[in-house]
């Protein structure tokens, strides 16, 4: 996949004796929103873990802008420009919203620029401006998701990996989050998101991969996938087809 910001090249991942990924290859072009779809236990979240270096694949390569990051420790990968919006958000509950946002800029030393970015990002998330001094653990799920996304932006990343950003949110916040993802994307940040809700994800994504028991079962542009009868059956509530 030439010109891709993020490339996974025949990655094999294991949990102990259990293989999760089988020669998984995919690419995320710069500036696009790419989603990774799949049911439970298909290996979606594990894909996030190996990109962020929280888990090391047994073989294969992960490239960021052509540079291998496969064996780098997580902090180095973050410094290379990968930010994460983890599954179930994982804020620092006893820290204030402001502190959480600043944690997103932990690897940066340019204090003045960080402060400017904070102001800029708060324009994007006006709700958070009112809650800067509140402890993150006391926010609602939707607000926490906003903090998690804002926190990821604070590191000025090239790529943001989002693990199920709409999970557990009220419909109102789901729309809000999707809009924000598009806004972020328009600012030039590449987005790779894992979603169980294919319908939602494909509405905003440019390209999609469907992961099934550790292999790419299907891929294509978002409109293609939306039209694909298989996808409709399995993910878009056509008929309920039992997955393997």
């Amino acid at each position: 996949m030439n010109g891709a910001l993020l490339t996974l090249d025949s990655v094999n991942t294991f949990y102990g004796p259990v293989q999760v990924h089988f020669d998984l290859s995919l690419g995320v072009p710069a500036g696009k929103i790419v989603c990774l779809l799949g049911g439970n236990a298909s290996g979606k979240s594990t894909t996030m873990k190996i990109i962020l270096g929280l888990l090391k694949p047994r073989s294969g390569a992960i490239l960021l802008d052509g540079q291998p990051i496969t064996n780098l420790p997580t902090p180095a990968i973050v410094r290379a420009g990968v930010a994460s919006v983890p599954e179930s958000r994982r804020l620092f509950p006893a820290m204030t919203v402001r502190e959480n946002l600043l944690m997103g800029a932990f690897t940066r030393r340019d204090r003045a620029a960080v402060q400017q970015d904070l102001d800029r990002i708060l324009e994007l998330f006006p709700r958070l401006g009112e809650r800067l001094a509140q402890r993150a653990g006391t926010l609602s799920g939707g607000e926490q998701q906003m903090v998690a996304m804002a926190r990821a932006l604070m590191g000025r990343p090239r790529l943001i990996c989002m693990d199920e950003p709409t999970m557990g949110l009220s419909p109102l916040y789901v729309d809000r989050v999707l809009e924000l993802i598009q806004t972020i994307s328009r600012q030039g940040v590449t987005i790779f998101m894992v979603e169980q809700n294919a319908n939602l994800a494909l509405q905003i994504a440019h390209y999609g991969y469907v992961l099934q028991t550790g292999r790419i079962a299907l891929q294509g542009s978002a409109p293609e996938l939306l039209r694909n009868p298989q996808i409709r059956d399995v993910y878009l509530g056509g008929q309920s087809v039992q997955q393997k």
């Binding site: 929280l54 994982r90 944690m103």
Partner: peptide, 22 residues
């Protein structure tokens, strides 16, 4: 800076790692 890292790690080690904290 380091003190913040300590507090963040105490609250959520994995999340701290993903903020680039060693």
């Amino acid at each position: 800076h380091l003190g913040w890292a300590v507090r963040a790690t105490a609250q959520d080690r994995d999340a701290a790692l993903q903020m680039g904290i060693d």
